[in-house]
């Protein structure tokens, strides 16, 4: 119910190794690991990747409670995606059940299993790799290591930091709706008045924040220096190599098992 559940980086158990990797390298690793898996819809590649990931994350110190607490949305999303594929996946083989457009067949069952495991294999690494990412450090990495334009990276960082204030705004507005006599009915309407007021407050705060930033010389032509250096080192390299290896092994195992099923075929 309460919005606090969303207030981002909760203090959690430290992770071995992963915590020492620059956030941008974690982002790169997540992309390199999961993007190749998007090319195929088969259970072997997805399951291989998933098993390797679970072993490695366990070694890094991710416990089962941590996994469940952080990854429950994926655990729900995976079977949901599976059900959709079960009913509407390309029919082939024997047909077991049909209703209007929905047809459950041998082919759709296989696809459903594949998609369910695939959502887990693709979703988990991002959630777990980003678990302790500090937005400030991510921004430092994006601007200093990846050389994205600092105006945009820092502007986005500063804007995103206001999220805590927005949550407080939202809570105050929820209480005020009850005080104003409109708390009994019309959830959707009430939500709309609050959503609108939140946008107004957000844009106002954003405009003021922009003024404060400009007053500190932000956005001028002067080349910027960085008070803290964002570094990458061997842990970054190891993580990236690991990611590429897992992807390669998973795809290779699917090809070897003959289940590789290109997403466009």
């Amino acid at each position: 119910m309460s919005a606090e559940t969303y207030s981002v980086p909760q203090a959690a158990a430290r992770l071995r190794f992963i915590d020492r990797v620059n956030p941008v390298s974690r982002l790169a690793a997540a992309m390199l690991l999961t993007t190749p898996l998007l090319l195929t819809v088969d259970w072997v590649s997805a399951a291989t990747a998933l098993v390797i990931q679970l072993v490695l994350f366990a070694l890094a110190g991710v416990t089962l409670p941590t996994l469940l607490r952080r990854a429950w949305p994926i655990l729900i999303a995976a079977p949901v995606a599976g059900v959709s594929m079960l009913l509407y996946g390309q029919p082939s083989g024997e047909e077991y059940w049909t209703f209007w457009l929905a047809r459950i067949t041998d082919g759709s069952i296989e696809l459903a299993v594949a998609v369910t495991v695939r959502v887990l294999a693709i979703g988990l690494p991002a959630v777990l790799l980003f678990m302790h990412v500090d937005p400030t450090e991510l921004a430092d990495g994006l601007a200093q290591v990846w050389h994205l334009p600092s105006r945009f990276v820092l502007g986005a960082l500063a804007g995103a930091r206001l999220v805590g204030l927005f949550i407080e705004d939202w809570q105050a507005m929820s209480l005020s709706r009850r005080a104003r006599g409109i708390g009994d009915h019309g959830t959707v309407r009430r939500f709309a008045t609050m959503a609108f007021a939140l946008l107004v407050l957000a844009i106002r705060r954003g405009s003021k924040l922009a003024t404060a930033m400009e007053a500190r010389g932000f956005g001028s032509e002067v080349p910027r220096t960085w008070a803290r250096e964002s570094r990458v080192g061997w842990p970054d390299l190891v993580l990236v190599v690991l990611a590429v290896t897992i992807a390669a092994v998973s795809i290779a195992s699917a090809v070897w098992a003959g289940t590789f099923h290109a997403v466009w075929s």
């Binding site: 502007g155 804007g159 995103a160 957000a202 844009i203 705060r205 922009a210 932000f218």
Partner: peptide, 23 residues
């Protein structure tokens, strides 16, 4: 892009994202 363009664009992104979570 002015600074206010960048920051307000980011703020809109964050606020809409938050609204989806609340929704």
């Amino acid at each position: 892009w002015r600074v206010v363009d960048i920051v307000v664009a980011a703020v809109i992104a964050v606020a809409t994202g938050l609204l989806f979570l609340f929704w």
